[in-house]
Design a protein around this nucleic acid. Sequence first.
DNA 1: TATTGTTATACTCTATAACTATA
DNA 2: TATAGTTATAGAGTATAACAATA
Lengths: 150, 150
Amino acid sequence: MANKRGLATTGSVAFQASQLGPWAARQFAERIASVGLRPRHVALLEMLRGGARSQLDLAKALGVTASVVVDMLDELERLGAVARARSAVDRRRQGVELTARGRSLADSCVAISYQIDEVMLAHLRPAERRQFQAAMRAIAQGLGLPCSES
Amino acid sequence: MANKRGLATTGSVAFQASQLGPWAARQFAERIASVGLRPRHVALLEMLRGGARSQLDLAKALGVTASVVVDMLDELERLGAVARARSAVDRRRQGVELTARGRSLADSCVAISYQIDEVMLAHLRPAERRQFQAAMRAIAQGLGLPCSES
DNA sequence: TATTGTTATACTCTATAACTATA
DNA sequence: TATAGTTATAGAGTATAACAATA
């Protein structure tokens, strides 16, 4: 009990989420470093799986600045995971597409993300897990964070 | 549906947590900036409410490096929120204590953290909220992240 | 020699602003 | 003029390593 009403910042979901987020990101980082990927690449690869998009579209969907997307795509291009090609229609636009290698990397990220879930949810019973997953998705969608809709 | 099995990285709890964490941290940052605090100060103030500790103890409990704690305490000292005093018994040690101002700031952080929870959990029904809060706490404790035990 | 606290330094991640080339 | 992309730069935030004082 931290204050007179028994409430503590560390007991809030907001605080715990702000601790859990970096923990999950570190798990990602450790497991994808061997193929040259970093955590921020994961969401980008995922979005590209839906098809080619312009870089500014990607920036908006990811909630980051355009310059960050440029930098991430430079790195992914060096890894051979994406290919950029100027649009013939509007030469300002760069079409961005996953290569076969990129699709393979995206698949690896999916597998890794669910391995991390196993560790995170290890202390919950099956029914609690399903409730937690559903609630987390509802929260992410409610706040407009990037998450899959299905 | 992102791949052949309908799984996507963005659908994992790990990914969603890694998005939600920074969101929560940004909420903290916006609401405590007016009094000169930053998100990383919140957990530190909280822990000091339990009583004086050595700086290395605090670093370990927070999961950060000693140099980070020094820096944070410098800032909190400038705000008049904490006081450092060399131990008479072991002059290597700095006792760190909350001032009245520091206790007041810690109370504000508690209030703010639960305001953020209101926003985060707005889309959940009361029973779902309680389940989510309990699960989040179980996860944070299971992973050894800083969180209140009560 | 080991430990507490401190400083100096470097690295990661992101944002802002200025620039280019197209439209 | 406005837009897509790019580059340059700066700001948080953190970690590592070397250091001083003390044990």
